[in-house]
Design a binder for these strands. Structure first.
Lengths: 341, 341
DNA sequence: CCCATGAACTGAACCGGTTTAGTCAACTAT
DNA sequence: ATAGTTGACTAAACCGGTTCAGTTCATGGG
């Protein structure tokens, strides 16, 4: 029927008021008589008027969209389901708000910064999510300069003007080490993620601290880039030694799963000859054998919280940091007491 | 310096011409004198003028953005890295075009259709990618009705007005079966994906056809939803039988990897006691043990081709179907001749 | 020589909202 | 009774582009 697009002028004419008043009524701002407001809204409803997002964008200088720029290397991106889950969480909040998510996947940091610039220059987004925080993260001064609201996933180091939505990984790593130590392991190694990444460093530090707390000698640590390939290589190196660790704590699940593959290949039984733990609790953990003991991270919950916080920041100009329940150890079958030998 | 935003009016004034002419010059349309055009562009450059995307959107009724709506269930989404790779491919094309990608992740088909409607109502996107095609796909008539350009990933059944970008998976499945048959397998089962999905059905039919072509009896087929969990369950069922298959062809890698886990758990050796093949060649295939023999799908390439095609459709009003190189079998270590027993 | 043609360019309308300045009537305070 | 205030509402400007109907002027054909 009324396939023709109806504009604010149509509503105004039909309701017998001016365009401006319709706008006021719609955005329920003061200055509109009570019954007039009702009438206007009624007419709008009858006519099926949907204010044009584009027109609104032009005059308000807002886009009603949020941005996410992902700068992971393709290998890591492909094996880590963090973002799909995180995004699903974000969307569950945005959908109700008539807001959209603009996604960019870029190959490197250079392009990443450039992408933020053009996102702002084009007014594509009103705010962004900052994930995979790095040391001295160049995005923070950039976004500050650009005046773009943002929420960081995890607390940024230094002083960041942006609210942080955080899941503390430290307890999860501590628990992993503690659990392995309690099982009787003494030679525990760590396959760390990239130390460029804050969470890479943090997990690594948590590992070191936990070893000390458990009264164990410093564990061997191998740095990687978080990719399955790197996890495989690191494991091969650790297990190729004359005296090898009896347990390995991996900084993420893809690396742990790759490590499990290497152990199988080398004929090293898990968990009898080698115990391993992962981090993130990706879906695959449950389906490899033995099922992977890991630390839960709840990316979807994280997405919801981050979206909520970002929206609040944009509405009210400020938002509090949010601390989500700390990641906890999930015990499955990939760890057991070490066998004497 | 010139942090103030410069508009087309500034350029016009500085160049001593009218706004309209600047617009003409910018969009290099006829009706502008050669040296005037040069002068205008020079002035624009000097002033650092960037035409406002929002203003342009309003007057041209375009958004300069493409949309992708993903309606997978969270479990499948979380274990299948198809989309991250696909999106990376899409982005590699869009970035150069100053276009953005709007992503929606929705929980069900109902919401999915609603999302397309609001994407159009809000004029968020100028075109969309249609993935995970289904039988009698409701999206096709909907988008036709809405007049939104689209590209389908794979050929839609029935008559679709949209160009299709296709990777034929039939040869890959055929090769898998053929390969297993040549190794000497006769009891080959298939863990199929959802038959709601076109590629689920197609792979299943390819499997059946391949069995016939190899002169083998019809293989046992279990339908699933493509999730790792379903792959695990299906495998458990197949291997729990008195007479079990000696090889299983999975319709995707997550299910194959989950199946591998089940086999390990049951003490069934792969590939000695059971051969398996996957589909998609996700990163993990290389890192589980034994490494998974699978079929390559090249989602990033698919993304590039789909983006290119969609852009062409939007520019020129039409675009040809694209057939990408067919998926091929990649032989790794998860299949071997069956052991007599 | 005159008129038709067309290229170069202008002015204004237009896209569809928001916002501000200002009008008008009713109400309050003095 | 009168000036001042307040609330409801209008008209017009504004956001920053695109587009279209005209105007101007040079050119060329008849």
């Amino acid at each position: 029927m009324s396939a023709e697009k109806v504009t604010i002028a149509d509503v105004a004419r039909t309701a017998g008021v001016s365009k401006g008043l319709v706008s006021f009524a719609l955005n329920n701002r003061p200055g509109v008589g009570a019954e007039t407001r009702v009438r206007i809204l009624q007419v709008a409803q009858d006519l099926g008027w949907k204010p044009s997002l584009r027109a609104r964008s032009l005059s308000t200088q807002r886009s009603f969209a949020l941005g996410l720029v992902i700068a992971r290397n393709p290998e890591v991106l492909a094996s880590d389901p963090f973002f799909p889950s995180f995004i699903a969480g974000v969307e569950s909040i945005l959908a109700a708000e008539r807001r959209a998510l603009v996604l960019s996947v870029v190959p490197d940091e250079e392009t990443e910064l450039q992408t933020y610039r053009s996102l702002v220059a084009d007014g594509r987004v009103d705010g962004v999510f900052l994930s995979d925080l790095r040391h001295n993260d160049a995005r923070i001064p950039l976004l500050t300069e650009l005046g773009l609201p943002a929420v960081t996933l995890g607390r940024a180091e230094g002083d960041s003007p942006f609210p942080a939505v955080t899941i503390d990984d430290t307890p999860g790593v501590m628990e992993s080490v503690r659990y392995l130590a309690d099982l009787g392991h003494r030679r525990i190694a760590h396959v760390a993620g990239s130390t460029n990444l804050l969470h890479g460093t943090r997990r690594r530090e948590a590992f070191a601290a936990a070893m000390t707390a458990a009264g164990l000698p410093d564990g061997q640590t191998v740095e990687t880039d978080f990719s399955a390939r790197a996890g495989s290589d690191a494991t091969r190196r650790l297990l190729g030694q004359a005296i090898r660790p009896t347990a390995i704590v991996y900084a993420n699940d893809p690396m742990a799963i790759a490590g499990l593959g290497v152990a199988h290949e080398l004929g090293i039984r898990v968990p009898e000859d080698l115990s391993i733990t992962g981090f993130d609790d990706i879906d695959f953990c449950r389906y490899v054998f033995p099922p992977l003991t890991t630390v839960s991270a709840a990316p979807a919950v994280w997405g919801r919280a981050a979206a909520t916080t970002l929206l609040q920041l944009m509405e009210h100009g400020r938002a509090d940091d949010v601390d989500l329940p700390a990641a906890r150890l999930i015990i499955r079958g990939s760890a057991a007491p070490p066998t004497r030998h």
